[in-house]
Structure formats: C-alpha cells, structure tokens
C-alpha cells in the first residue's frame, strides 16, 4: 500500500535530481568559462551555486521533517540518509565549480595568456560523466552502474597527476606564468574533487540499494 506521505519521499528524490542536474550544469559551465574565457558564464556559475545551496538546505529540512513525522525505516530511511549525504556532495560540486570559475576570473584579470589546458577538459568530461552516471544509477536504482563508477575515479586521479606534472613543467619553462599555472593546478584539483564527490554519491546509491558498503564489497571482490 502506498501511503499519502510517500509523495514526500518522491519530492525529496526529485529535489536531489534537480540538484544533480544543476551541479552537472555548473561543472560544464565552469569548463566553458575557462575554455572560452567568458566572464558572463563565470558569473552564472556563481549564481547557480546559491540555488544549489538553497536546495541543499531545503532537502535537509524535508529530511528532518520526514524523519520526525513519518518514522521511516529500512529503504525509506536509507534514502533519507543518502539524500542528506548526496545533497552535501552535490553542494560541494557546486562549490568546486564556483572555485574553478573564481580562479578563472583571477587568471583572466591578470591578463596573462595561457595556451595550455593540459588534460583539464578530459578530466572535466570524465568527472561529469561520472556524476551523470551516479545520478542515473540513483534514478534507475541500478547498483551495477554505481559499481562501475568507482573504476573511473582512478582514471581521473591519473589525469590529475599528469596535469600536475605538465603544469609544473610549464612553470619551470616560463617563470612569468607561475601564477597562471598555480591556479591551473588548483583548477585541475577541483575537477578531481568533483569526480571524488561523484564517486561518493555512487557509494551512497550503492548503500541505498543494497544496504552494503561499496568499499567493503570492493575489498571482497579484490580478494576473490
């Protein structure tokens, strides 16, 4: 039997989805601002982050209300837990996107030119695809997708290390570009963090669907 208040759970789910879409959009726009050196896009990312923060607050309130009034158990309760954790991750994605565009603005303000983005666009693409898949596994309730995401995180980490080496080399080549590439290292790090949050969400979805810790499962799989 579906109870009248189960709609409230659906509302929470849809808020997470909306938040996810906005976070993906922010990460996308952050890369575009960097590539196209576009300040307007950068501003819209900052504005978007405020909305993401607002949704997170709203989800927190709804979860607290649902736990107080509806006494959820089992999967409903896990959904509420991961709603809080995933919304926090998504909020952090928004923050990272904001931090990327702030650094982009700094670089643009210094009037220094940069010709090299390294593997940053690739990283961004990968991180966004991880985020999308994490959200997809959440809607589809498919723990296999969540399981796959974990591997991709390693690739992002590798790209980040490549970037670091490349940007350090570039700094060595041209001392005047140190400021620019220092920011670039941080930007690369931010995309790597976005991928981390996507991985967290995947772990949370996995827990929601199977009530098992994905880390434990991976350890187990590695042993066999």
């Amino acid at each position: 039997m579906k109870r009248f208040f189960h709609e409230e759970l659906e509302a929470i789910r849809s808020h997470i989805m909306e938040m996810g879409e906005r976070a993906v959009e922010s990460a996308n726009l952050a890369l575009r601002a960097l590539e196209q050196r576009d300040l307007d896009i950068a501003e819209s990312v900052i504005e978007g982050d405020e909305i993401i923060d607002a949704i997170e607050t709203r989800i927190d309130e709804e979860v607290a209300r649902y736990i107080s009034l509806r006494a959820p158990v089992a999967k409903d309760l896990r959904l509420l837990f991961i709603a809080v954790k995933a919304s926090h991750d998504l909020e952090r994605v928004g923050d990272e996107a904001t931090s990327i565009v702030k650094r982009t603005k700094k670089i643009l303000a210094s009037n220094e030119t940069y010709r090299e983005l390294g593997r940053v666009p690739d990283m961004c693409e990968l991180a966004i695809s991880m985020l999308k898949e994490a959200l997809f596994s959440f809607i589809q309730e498919d723990e296999d997708i969540a399981y796959q995401i974990i591997r991709q995180d390693k690739e992002v980490d590798a790209l980040n290390r490549e970037n670091f080496k490349e940007f350090v080399e570039l700094m060595k080549d041209d001392a005047s570009k140190v400021d620019v590439y220092a920011e670039m290292i941080f930007i690369s790090k931010s995309f790597e963090r976005i991928a981390d949050h996507a991985k967290n969400i995947a772990e949370e979805v996995y827990f929601l669907l199977t009530s098992q810790s994905l880390k434990q499962v991976l350890k187990g799989d590695a042993q066999t």
């Binding site: 509302a11 849809s14 808020h15 909306e18 906005r22 949704i55 709203r58 709804e62």
Partner: peptide, 10 residues
C-alpha cells in the same frame, strides 16, 4: 528553483 515544489506545511 524559484518556488518551492512541495506544499508548505506551515
């Protein structure tokens, strides 16, 4: 997210 999607309970 301009207007709340869930009815206000208060």
């Amino acid at each position: 997210m301009d207007t709340p999607a869930v009815e206000s309970h208060r």
